[in-house]
Nucleic acid binder design. Structure first.
Lengths: 349, 349
DNA sequence: CTGAAAGCGCTTACAG
DNA sequence: CTGAAAGCGCTTACAG
């Protein structure tokens, strides 16, 4: 009695097309045709096979099928910071859209480390994904990526452009978003507007600054150097840096903030100076994180709809898969952004 | 010229063990042994093969290997609400720990829909995962789950017990956490303490209430019925429900809140009544979401460390895999919780 | 230490 | 409409 009784075969290992074929009295090929819903099989035969599938509780081995067919229904999704709610929403959207189209998501998280990114990608590549959606770690290197991804894998890069990479790319239209935010403040009568927060060497910050400057110019206003203020993109550093807005002789009356975290931090900093956000000093955010709507007063911000971006990324990648052999050009898509104004809109001084 | 030139074979399809064997002048078996780092291969041969692997840019097809070996290094991770930062952190921890151990994560998100959960699991099962980490959707049905998962798959259920399921289970020790929070308030001199927020019919709320009552009893205090207040577990509903705490003749001086969202909502509700949170009325949260530390005053809360929980879940599942044939009993693990007191601690009235 | 052969679970021409 | 046979890329006894 050293070994467990072999018992009925079904408890030992999963049934295969062979078992089904035997049970239904047909060949393996016929079972395969039934599984793939081929119209070539006689209705009676099909019914018999399907009954047998149910009876034996068959589960399709898609890996084996993919191997034989030289296809794959897995898409690798590699994220620089999954714990960040923005990317968590993005991943949710990707997985949702892929699932609807019959794909399965292979997840990897890099925590902003290019080395981990290489390792994660190498591991995922062994599973022959049909494509990759990559939200790259900072300082990703195009050559290294190409060496691990090979020249043929359909790739969609999200959010951060990779220098020297010529993969399809989806990004928030940072510049346009900042233009919208700036125009929103100008419409409300502000003339002395600062751009507040973020690291000027990050590409997203540069783009948002450019949008800000463009909207200012378009309104015949001047974007003053001393009102372009850098902070870490965090609530805490933003709050602490608030005095930088009020140093000179003239003060701005409003600020376009780099993102919501910065804007919420600035609100704290304003309160600490006994300024009422939205009344004594107007500001806008960027991202539309859930807390933006819950702040008091609610924060006017640029809605990026990360879940929709995820769906969009999935669609773009799948389109690329479909067009694999006819495609020669790189695509750059930009996401729809819109002002989500708090209700009532902040009153200006 | 209808077809692209066939060119060098390497641009057409990925090299296989065959190609490497041919290139290195050995058999496929030898290549396989080199890949699996067998000591049986002569050092010279190994070097030759490895050079060839590099030269042809070989990438291992783990799917094929898994098929032949009847193994799998994929773990399915199915989450009820990935967009929720708590679960995003959890997923991050799972993926991190699995990656370290050479596993790959197959992701699925159910959005709290049991139907989607069935569909997602069925799809993932076709990829023959070695195991499953499941944070179940509400109202998951054990029988349905068993039918899609089969009787043999190693499973770890996280967070919500499934009635009638006898899978391994990891949960926050809700009761203990609430005890800690309650004891914290009692230590600071409070006697009239409410339990505020959450739905009394959710198991986590029941458990937290039980912990609250236990700690009250242990201190010889009475948990009053009218101070067990239900709200939706959201900031907004919590804020709106604040008056319920101040209806009777006697008012509580403190509240153990169901979670951080509820606590932050209550803080807003208190401010609206001109009560200073932490000074005029003390409260605790549960979860330790990032905003807890940023509230003013910072919220004292119970740290659940979701990323650590993710790592723990991965470890528990992998242990189950290792012990697959010797295991007969169900495991229930509970996560470490601790009070993260705000500094300085809230002053009591 | 290496090679020839069989097989994991599936699919796909190719005959019939 | 169905069956026999080959093969996807890998591994593993089994000989030598």
């Amino acid at each position: 009695m050293k070994k467990a009784a072999t018992g009925s075969a079904s408890t030992q290992r999963a049934p295969t097309v062979c078992d089904i074929a035997a049970g239904a009295g047909v060949s393996r090929a016929t079972v395969s045709l039934v599984l793939r819903e081929s119209p070539l099989v006689h209705a009676d035969t099909r019914a018999r096979v399907q009954a047998e599938l149910k009876k034996q509780n068959y589960v399709y081995n898609r890996g084996a099928a993919n191997l034989r067919r030289r296809t794959s229904n897995a898409i690798a999704l590699v994220i620089n910071d999954l714990a960040n709610p923005f990317f968590a929403e993005f991943a949710t959207g990707v997985d949702e859209a892929l699932g609807e189209r019959g794909y399965v998501t292979l997840l990897g998280n890099t925590g902003e480390s290019p080395q981990r990114q290489q390792a994660v990608l190498a591991s995922l590549m062994e599973h022959t994904p049909a494509g990759l959606i990559l939200s790259p770690a900072e300082h990703s290197d195009a050559a290294q990526l190409r060496s691990v991804l090979g020249p043929h894998l359909p790739v969609l890069v999200f959010n951060r452009k990779i220098e020297g990479g010529n993969w399809d790319f989806l990004a928030l239209d940072n510049q346009h978003g900042a233009e919208l935010a700036t125009a929103h403040l100008i419409e409300r009568g502000h003339r002395r507007i600062a751009f507040y927060g973020g690291h000027a060497d990050s590409s997203s910050c540069r783009q948002r600054r450019a949008g800000f400057e463009k909207a200012m110019r378009a309104a015949g206003l001047h974007a003053r150097k001393e009102w372009m203020i850098e902070t870490k993109p965090s609530r805490i550093d933003s709050a602490a840096s608030t005095p930088a807005l009020f140093q000179g002789k003239h003060h701005p009356t409003a600020a376009v903030c780099y993102n919501d975290a910065v804007a919420l931090g600035l609100m704290l900093g304003l309160v600490a100076r006994s300024l009422r956000p939205g009344r004594d000093f107007a500001l806008t955010g960027f991202d539309d994180i859930p807390e933006a709507a819950l702040a008091s007063p609610p924060l006017t911000t640029i809605a990026t709809q990360p879940r929709e971006r995820g769906r969009q990324a999935a669609e773009l990648l799948l389109a690329q898969l479909g067009a694999a052999h006819t495609r020669f050009r790189q695509t750059t898509a930009s996401a729809q952004l819109q002002v989500r104004a708090s209700t009532p809109p902040p009153t200006c001084t």
